[in-house]
Design a protein around this nucleic acid. Structure first.
Lengths: 263, 263
DNA sequence: ACCTGAACACCGTTCAAGT
DNA sequence: ACCTGAACACCGTTCAAGT
């Protein structure tokens, strides 16, 4: 029943690493991390496992390649796309400032997880597998250049960039979990799409709030505050917090601000 | 051939969730993440898989429990243990300041990965599985209380705590990868333990340095700098960087420091 | 050089059956 | 209530064989 115009194209198209990675991303997006198996992949590509192993060494390598492709796409989006988000923070700031470019990268990744909820997990896995893998250097390089442009003293480049990258990946991962859980909660109860978000936020903050108040007073207190804030706003505030810490590194006479005036 | 004094104790001891988790941690420590299988576990505990499933719902739940046990132990160490590290940063600071307690938590986790290299990966996985799992709240709560003690305005509690937690987990994970890779490199070449570290640092910074300089100028520049710095020092600098950003949140008249004087 | 597909070793999980 | 262990479905990976 499939239109035959597309048929010949599909089948004739030679198997390539690109095509395999593309199929892997589609599978991850639609079926989740557990949905990407060599059997599902061979079926989708109409081949045998051996064919895939000729183009790709490993499942890990395939996962890394899929992650890399998605990250590259996310980093390539025009900074202007996220301009609205940037404005949220400092309306008076020049749109081409290093800060703004860092925010653009951050939001590029943040927004990418909407289509690819598996991204943060995979990034964390690769970061802990080998920090000098193929993907994390892309992010590190992108952020690092702006850190340098910020005028940070060379001795602090690594520290500053690490702080930003870790925050972005961590916050992004947390948000992905939220999103995924929202979807699960919703599908389990078959709710209308519109109610999903609010419905879920309830559940999430309730889960935090339900922890024993004696053991977790802070979390309990913060659970309420979580409900009121927009995810993107929260995320941006975190990026700006780290940016503030970085900026302090090269402002003359500000080095010892860690210690509060008290004591 | 085994001493029979111990024998009866071992075999008679009833199977419990605690004993299972304990065995899981040992397996993870000695055989790595791929070494923890239900078969290895049943062999070590001299039972069948069904017995384990009676005490534990899932492999994920087992992993979470193992992670939780190790994190709890890491968070329980006396802050004094890490005093030397804290002194590295601000010698003049009171030893009981919130900053110091945060550093103690950070180093508690940082040091725990030496014995448990699988910790950061597992933490990241759980954080992205469900941020309100059993383990991450422990860390969140521990850090959060000190953030509150720091005098951070309530509206920023979540943001500030997130920034710290994400940095700590991320940097810790990166370091675990370094350590693991060092071990691999060393064992592959069967070098003396003393040479390991230096030998490896060479390899790591070389790997970064070998990236195409045209595509990764920043990373290439930073690779050299990485060699000269001590891991712990680097880690502490990152924590202090975030702390600086946090402190700026409640210093009067400092809110707009993100924007540099330029423009 | 590129692909096929049966076969292998191993995994998490279940469940009827025992005590 | 707690444990046994055979069995199941499924996984990543290999490899002799084809073109």
């Amino acid at each position: 029943m499939a239109p035959r115009t597309r048929r010949s194209q599909r089948r004739t198209e030679a198997l390539s690493r690109e095509r395999i990675v593309e199929a892997a991303v589609e599978l991850l997006d639609t079926a989740g991390e557990s949905g990407l198996t060599f059997r599902a992949l061979t079926e989708r590509l109409a081949t045998g496992p051996g064919a895939i192993y000729w183009h790709v060494a490993d499942k890990d390598e395939l996962l890394d390649a899929a992650t890399g492709a998605v990250v590259a796409a996310a980093l390539a989006v025009e900074p202007a796309t996220h301009a609205e988000a940037a404005e949220l923070a400092k309306p008076a700031e020049s749109p081409d400032s290093p800060q703004d470019k860092i925010r653009a990268i951050a939001f590029g990744l943040f927004d990418a997880i909407e289509d690819h909820p598996w991204l943060p997990t995979q990034l964390a896995l690769q970061l802990s597998r080998s920090p000098w893998g193929s993907v994390t250097p892309q992010i590190f390089e992108g952020i690092g250049r702006q850190v340098r442009a910020l005028g940070v003293p060379e001795g602090h480049w690594f520290t500053a960039t690490s702080a930003l990258v870790h925050y972005i990946l961590g916050a992004t991962g947390q948000n992905a979990a939220n999103a995924a859980n929202a979807a699960n909660t919703a599908s389990a109860r078959t709710l209308a799409p519109d109610v999903d978000r609010e419905e879920f936020l309830d559940a999430a903050s309730k889960a935090w709030g339900e922890l024993d108040p004696d053991d977790y007073p802070f979390i309990r207190a913060v659970a309420a505050q979580m409900r009121e804030h927009d995810d993107r706003e929260q995320f941006l505030a975190g990026v700006d917090l780290v940016l503030t810490g970085i900026t302090a590194l090269h402002l003359p006479g500000e080095q010892d601000r860690t210690t509060p005036p008290a004591t």
